[in-house]
């Protein structure tokens, strides 16, 4: 009971801080748009050569890319939420949390839910741009996407928090995150269909848990023909449910590790 209250207030504080930070709030609305413009126009010409499969499926490249950008926004926001823990450590507020009569699990849960909520909000904002790229979304699609993004964001936030729990300085956190983010993003089907990849690259993409999150977004945004460029694992084409189940399993492991990491600190 007291832990539920603690999870709530830790979550609430994260939202409050997000809301207060007008600069970040602003950039969270502008950045997705910029990404879309830059990735969409800059790369579409070259990618069209590779991406014949996408044309056959009845989507142009920018439409294919759209779910990938949504995934990228959620991924970046979620993973970077770990930074709030590094900040709290540096500013001393983490001590206020760590001496409170609540379990470390509650701390990890509250932080995970906070970061995941913010990442989901960011992803949802991104969906506003769907009509501009010629994708129309129904209310039920949007609701499904919110659920998918939230599960995905929880998993990724927990991973960021796990890393932040062990890293003491801002600089080190930034470096580790860059090293981690780039393979997670570039070795995912965010920017290209898996089918056309050399097999070694295809294997790496299939190992990357982020791939399944993005695949689930793409399948729910670009239905119904999207199966043409979805991931298949051992010859089995993944459904939305299977995708998100894998993501959730990964997330469960991350949450458990994060809780463990928080509890074993001195």
């Amino acid at each position: 009971m007291s832990n539920l209250r603690a999870i709530y207030i830790i979550w609430y504080r994260d939202l409050l801080r997000f809301w207060r930070d007008k600069a970040r709030l602003f950039s969270s609305f502008v950045m997705p748009f910029l990404f879309l413009v830059i990735f969409g126009t800059g790369l579409s010409a070259s990618m069209l050569l590779l991406g014949r499969g996408t044309e056959e499926a009845g989507y142009n490249y920018i439409q294919f890319l759209f779910p990938g950008i949504v995934g990228m926004i959620v991924l970046f926001t979620a993973v970077m939420w770990g930074v709030s823990i590094v900040w709290d450590r540096e500013f001393g507020f983490l001590k206020e949390i760590l001496v409170a009569p609540i379990s470390r699990a509650a701390v990890a849960m509250g932080k995970t839910l906070g970061g995941a909520t913010i990442a989901t909000v960011q992803g949802t904002v991104m969906l506003v741009f769907a009509p501009f790229v010629g994708v129309s979304l129904s209310v039920s699609q949007v609701l499904l996407l919110i659920v998918l993004m939230f599960v995905f964001a929880c998993s990724i936030t927990a991973m960021g928090i796990l890393i932040a729990s062990r890293i003491k300085t801002m600089e080190a956190f930034q470096v580790v995150m860059q090293l981690l983010l780039f393979p997670l993003f570039f070795l995912s089907p965010a920017r290209f269909p898996v089918q056309n990849l050399p097999s070694w690259l295809g294997t790496l993409v299939r190992i990357n848990p982020v791939s399944y999150g993005i695949d689930s977004f793409r399948q729910s945004i670009l239905e119904p023909t999207s199966a043409n460029f979805g991931i298949n694992l051992f010859g089995h084409p993944m459904s939305i449910a299977e995708d998100i189940l894998l993501v959730a399993l990964f997330g469960l492991v991350m949450v458990l590790l994060a809780v463990w990491s928080f509890s074993t600190q001195e």
Partner: peptide, 15 residues
């Protein structure tokens, strides 16, 4: 049972 005022600052300055 305890209340603490740490040596180093520990408030959330943004709140």
């Amino acid at each position: 049972s305890i209340g603490l005022v740490f040596q180093d600052p520990s408030l959330d300055l943004r709140l």
